[in-house]
Amino acid sequence: MSGSQGMHSPVAQFEIKPLIELSFGGYDLSFTNSSLFMMLAIGVSAAFLISAMRRGELVPGRMQGLAEMMYEFVAEMVRSNVGHEGRPYFPFIFTLFVFLLFGNMLGLIPYSYTFTSQIVVTFAMAAFVFVGVTLIALFKHGLHFFSFFVPAGAPKVLIPFLIVIEVISYFVRPVSLSVRLFANMLAGHTMLKVFAGLAVMISGAGGLAMAGSLLPFVALIGLTGLEVLVAALQAYVFTILTCMYLNDALHLH
């Protein structure tokens, strides 16, 4: 943990700070600021979804409507990308979407922590999805699964070359899936911090410079709006790609 960069480093916001020290078998398993916001993402989303649905009215109110909308959104995603066979995996996909959405959104609150900006977290999730869909495909199709790497209707001479490309592209999936989310969060939050730091720095000069600080401040407001969009979009992208990989696993080509 290197806090040596000081308060003004735009990447200092990503530092992991232990809140409750904990270690097991020589590993540091402390409950950290990242863990706290993971817990909040789960806690807030579950509390919202459960309390919104508590009355389960026939004609939904605002909160219930929102909860149902989230459910229908993910259900429709699974239905249109995976089809009927995707039903057993719906709770997982839903949890994934809600976890990422709330994690990204809560991370936008000042002084909070964005656990999806941690490559180890996004990669672990992507790797879990990758291993999971590969196992599902192997269980469902057996050795026939390997036909997935042979593109249909390709010229015979190109087939060895294409197989290499397909295999690489398959194994790159968890990397692209995790890096996409991680990089978006990292870049977005760094940019917000840079603009915020700029505004503070300029205003600190006092006098006429105070007016000059309005520029990065206004930009910051716009960027915050953009980051809200990115937060929702990246949760959606991660989830829909998971659906597509699952579809590939269940139906091959």
Binding site: L22, D28, F31, V120, V121, L186
Partner: peptide
Amino acid sequence: AGLPQLDISTWPSQLFWLVVLFTAGYTLMA
């Protein structure tokens, strides 16, 4: 110095809590 994300010493804790909390979340949702 680099990014805090690449500080490997924080990874076990992050992975541990990810597994625990995601599992808890999955259980609640499912």
